Computed example of a mutant assay.
Amino acid sequence: MKEDTIDFGFRKVRVDEKQKLVAGVFDSVASRYDIMNDLMSLGIHRLWKRHAISLLQVRDHHDVLDLACGSGDLSLLIAPKLKSGQLTLSDINDNMLAVAKNRLIDRGVVGNVHLALANAESLPFQDNSFDRIIIGFGLRNVTHKDKALASILRVLKPGGRALILEFSHPTSSLLSTWYDAYSFKMLPFLGKIIANDSESYRYLAESIRMHPCQESLKAMMLAAGFDSCHYFNLTGGIVAIHQGIKY
């Protein structure tokens, strides 16, 4: 039977509505996205991202795709590592892509950088285009995660590495209880005070809970065709880094 509804946080919505609803969330928060990330994670997101980039193992000749690039944090860490390679920033949301573009220009990152407005489920790149692909805190917002994983695998070069940095499931019940209280009380409150939008941040908290657990996402990567799949828990499983190779 064909799927006609899908999760949007804790709500069920029509499949064809989710992309528009997610776009509305990020249109709303784009201008305050970086401030909110620092407040929500107490700045720890910067450490998570640096650790992810170290695991990505970028070399100076690589072609790298920063998928669901958001405001460009990961690209700012990747760009200094590339000399002859190319860096492509891609996001489905044009407001977020504009924020990322302006941040890179402000930091003097120009030249070997490209921008692409694109849906992760159907990436507009040729097969075997990238040596490295990273998607940071974006996969949980994708309507069909299996299609996105297949699309990522298609555009990854043989021998290439894909890495998913995403909120996940705490590994202890005590941490999980604290995290739930923080997420569902503090995040909407901060969203209201800083971005004048509590509902978008309530959705973001809900989307984290609905995202596949560590083992489930690993299984999805294997089913998509990735090899050597494994994951690393950070901050007690609040965040996980999943990695896969294309052979």
Results as ranks from 00 to 15, higher is better:
residue 1 M to K: 11
residue 5 T to V: 14
residue 5 T to Q: 13
residue 7 D to F: 12
residue 10 F to R: 13
residue 19 Q to S: 14
residue 26 F to M: 09
residue 27 D to K: 10
residue 28 S to K: 14
residue 30 A to F: 10
residue 31 S to M: 13
residue 38 D to Y: 13
residue 38 D to G: 10
residue 41 S to H: 06
residue 42 L to A: 15
residue 44 I to W: 02
residue 46 R to K: 13
residue 49 K to W: 04
residue 55 L to Y: 07
residue 56 L to R: 02
residue 60 D to Q: 15
residue 68 A to I: 12
residue 70 G to E: 08
residue 78 I to R: 06
residue 82 L to D: 05
residue 88 T to D: 11
residue 95 N to E: 13
residue 100 A to Y: 07
residue 102 N to S: 14
residue 104 L to M: 08
residue 105 I to Y: 12
residue 107 R to F: 15
residue 110 V to L: 12
residue 111 G to P: 01
residue 113 V to P: 02
residue 114 H to S: 15
residue 116 A to E: 12
residue 120 A to G: 01
residue 121 E to A: 03
residue 128 N to T: 11
residue 130 F to W: 11
residue 133 I to V: 15
residue 136 G to D: 09
residue 143 T to Q: 01
residue 143 T to A: 00
residue 158 P to G: 09
residue 162 A to V: 14
residue 163 L to E: 05
residue 165 L to H: 11
residue 167 F to L: 13
residue 170 P to V: 04
residue 175 L to R: 05
residue 187 L to Q: 00
residue 190 L to E: 03
residue 196 N to F: 08
residue 202 R to E: 11
residue 203 Y to Q: 09
residue 205 A to Q: 05
residue 206 E to F: 00
residue 207 S to V: 01
residue 207 S to G: 01
residue 209 R to G: 07
residue 213 C to W: 02
residue 217 L to K: 00
residue 218 K to W: 02
residue 219 A to C: 01
residue 220 M to T: 10
residue 221 M to K: 02
residue 227 D to L: 12
residue 231 Y to V: 04
residue 233 N to G: 08
residue 237 G to S: 00
residue 239 V to S: 00
residue 245 I to D: 09
residue 246 K to Q: 04
residue 247 Y to E: 13
